[in-house]
């Protein structure tokens, strides 16, 4: 599945954002992206579950759902 082919990438005035997420199709919704990144940042950087456990769960989830990203 290639979402990049299903949604055309956003066009920016000048240089695209340095943040790869903001330069992707997620950049179409910058307010949603910022709010998600705040949430996700807390989850990973200030979480109460140790990082190794979260990463193992994330990778296992990716494998089960066959998500190459």
């Amino acid at each position: 599945m290639t979402w990049a082919a299903r949604i055309p990438p956003p066009v920016f005035d000048g240089e695209p954002p340095a943040d790869p997420a903001a330069a992707s199709v997620l950049g179409y919704q910058p307010e949603l992206l910022r709010a998600f990144q705040v949430l996700y940042g807390t989850l990973w950087q200030r979480g109460v579950v140790d990082h190794a456990t979260k990463e193992v769960a994330r990778l296992r989830n990716a494998r089960i759902t066959d998500c190459g990203y």
């Binding site: 949604i7 199709v25 997620l26 179409y28 919704q29 949603l32």
Partner: peptide, 10 residues
């Protein structure tokens, strides 16, 4: 639109 599709999928 593409922005709507992104928001919808999110």
């Amino acid at each position: 639109s593409p922005p709507e599709m992104v928001a919808f999928t999110e």
